[in-house]
Write a protein that binds this DNA or RNA. Structure first.
Lengths: 141, 141
DNA sequence: TTATAATTTTGTACTAATTACAAATTAAAA
DNA sequence: TTTTAATTTGTAATTAGTACAAAATTATAA
């Protein structure tokens, strides 16, 4: 998917900065923080300010081009994949991992109890498989 | 449910402050913020510090006596109801409302893709029924 | 009871993520 | 080109949450 075209399709003016942020989200499935995006793009766009990254991510979220994930205690995280899926954050390595929804897709409704739903998030926290394996190996009980 | 006894059952020393916070959570289903709890309890316990409210809520969360809800942009919110259910926040009035899980209970698992799950949250955002009705009446298109 | 140790609470200082805002820059329209 | 609008930038301000050590309270034991 070409980031620039994607923005235009959604009615967003495709500035250099916006294209860069959108492209980063589409090519990095790591659910990055504002800081991570800013640091990564700073190399190719040295003048890029953090405020612009904030502004752009807010804009992308409003236009449905990205999702803000509320799973991290300390930072907002963003996802360019807007299809229905859940997220898991490991409390050890802090990574955020996608959780496919086999049977939970019906939770992504547009209405519940008379309330109009604009967004749905399914958030899991715990210890990821990788950290668990590493801990088992390290402890050697 | 008596707050003091509940704390003892969970192995938490039932200090005056902890009982007050626990009791507040059990008697107010409003998913209050730290500030709301502090302000409410300040009347009966004038010396209560906000740090103690933070400490207590952290403790209660760790012992499974309360749940921290990550739905609010600006504040942590807490819930004394630890049974599986979802939450909805209205972006107009900011209230957080319980969402019963008719068919989503199976999402509250203890393991997914090899990751060990410690907590699950199902979060909805949008416009609540009350605000929707009020808006419709106000606009009068 | 009294002395001692452990726990809990409190208040202040600090941290850090996010936002507000206005100037500067860039792009679009006339 | 000139004017207008939109976007970006950097700094300052805000504010929720945490760290930390002193003070107060509670539990333990002599």
């Amino acid at each position: 998917m070409k980031a620039a075209r994607y923005l235009v399709e959604l009615g967003i003016q495709p500035s250099v900065q916006r294209i860069a942020v959108m492209d980063y989200l589409l090519t990095h499935k790591t659910h990055p923080t504002v800081d991570e995006i800013h640091q990564a793009l700073h190399k190719s766009i040295p003048t890029l300010s953090k405020t612009t990254v904030y502004n752009t991510l807010k804009l992308l979220s409003e236009y449905g081009a990205a999702i803000m994930i509320d799973i991290d205690e300390h930072n907002k995280r963003f996802d360019g994949d807007t299809s229905p899926h859940g997220h898991f954050q490991c409390s050890s390595c802090n990574r955020v991992i996608d959780i496919p929804l086999d049977n939970g897709r019906e939770l992504f409704l547009s209405e519940v109890d008379g309330h109009t739903i604009a967004s749905v998030q399914l958030l899991y926290k715990g210890i990821c498989a990788g950290c668990k394996a590493h801990n088992d190996k390290t402890k050697q009980n």
